[in-house]
Design a binder for these strands. Sequence first.
DNA 1: GCCTAATGTCTACACTGTAGGTACATTCAC
DNA 2: GTGAATGTACCTACAGTGTAGACATTAGGC
Lengths: 229, 229
Amino acid sequence: MEHAGNGRQKARPGRLDRGIVMRAALNLVDEHGLEALSMRRLGQVLKRDPMALYRHAAAGRKEVLAGIAELVLDELQPFADDTHWQTQLRRIAHELRRVCLLHPNVVPLLVTGPLSTPLGLRPAGTLKPLEQILGILIRAGFGPADALHVYRTFYGFLYGHILNELQEYVADPEENEALLRLGLYRLPLRDFPHLRRLAPELLDYDGSEELDQGISILLAGLGQQLSHR
Amino acid sequence: MEHAGNGRQKARPGRLDRGIVMRAALNLVDEHGLEALSMRRLGQVLKRDPMALYRHAAAGRKEVLAGIAELVLDELQPFADDTHWQTQLRRIAHELRRVCLLHPNVVPLLVTGPLSTPLGLRPAGTLKPLEQILGILIRAGFGPADALHVYRTFYGFLYGHILNELQEYVADPEENEALLRLGLYRLPLRDFPHLRRLAPELLDYDGSEELDQGISILLAGLGQQLSHR
DNA sequence: GCCTAATGTCTACACTGTAGGTACATTCAC
DNA sequence: GTGAATGTACCTACAGTGTAGACATTAGGC
């Protein structure tokens, strides 16, 4: 699969580098979850001594995790920024959603990883979306400070939606239905009247549609704020 | 600290129960972070054999984590629901924010914990806010299905904001300032013009204010959606 | 050739979650 | 009371984990 056959002499196991290690780690996490990522297992996958990873790729497990997150964010595809700012925001949202759904196991890293990593020290790749959105908003007429607030609201909502959607999403829909019904009927009707009535709606969840609706609400609010000044 | 001196005979170490264990675990996580929570260390704090925990409190570490999350959510204080629906939503938001800031180390559990726990199987305590907000929205005039969508948007935004705020928040503000300046000046001006200009605004972050602004945007959008049907 | 620096490999330590067994205490039926 | 049954406590053991440190091997420069 991987095996970037570097053309030096010591090509026996295929020379190791940071990129290869990180990609292997991402594969591992995608397939077997975050907990499956251990230095030893990673070494096993790469057919290398676990300690070799420390020399080439990372100073420790944490750094591997950070590397994975960065790798996933690098999958975000850039856009031409010629359309209306609202459609641009919409596109960005769907693009982030797309990438996150491709790597659901990595999402916890994305949302909680940068915790306690001060903004100034984050890798440039992580800051690009921020800069991009600031640009869009400022060109749309927001003042720089307002643009920052709006960015936070927008991105906050975005991450929130993605977390929501990942919770809603369950592998097997049929099992999901059974579980849901069982679970809901367990709840006392007097305490959870609305929730129990909404069982059918809970079952057909369309994440993309849901995201669009949320953004529409946000944009309506934003438009209003923009015109009121 | 804990030591609920139960009045039986074998009161030497003070009889163990699930509540005590969970509270001790929460303390541990609050003070030393999620990684510090191990069954062995928890046993040490409680002066019990680690294996005793398995008998009394939980089937494993995962269950302890779930218990912690539940415990934190139980700290949410209920409201009288007599005011305007918008003020109610605002209160709920601030209340959740308050509790999360009290237990920042637990937030990752709250946002990613219920992942892959189907909605129907979550503990009733976790579902109460959902039911509550559905009620508020339906009484405000939303149809049940719309109320569900709005709930998702609202809660998604809420969790997103909290994650954002926890990222912004750093222990020592002075160090924060130094780091930020250092970090931002490292970024090439041509690629990050807006971000570098916003350094001062990045420094004084008021989470409560920020949350309020976001909610205002949301509510403006919601009001518009509500009147358009 | 040899010297230096980089790289690979192995061992070892201090941890982790938790299955399984054993010794003790308490409780209940009679 | 006695005996059985049940619950509790504790220990040991196993298969993992991250990673520091020492050692062997190799590559490159001269």
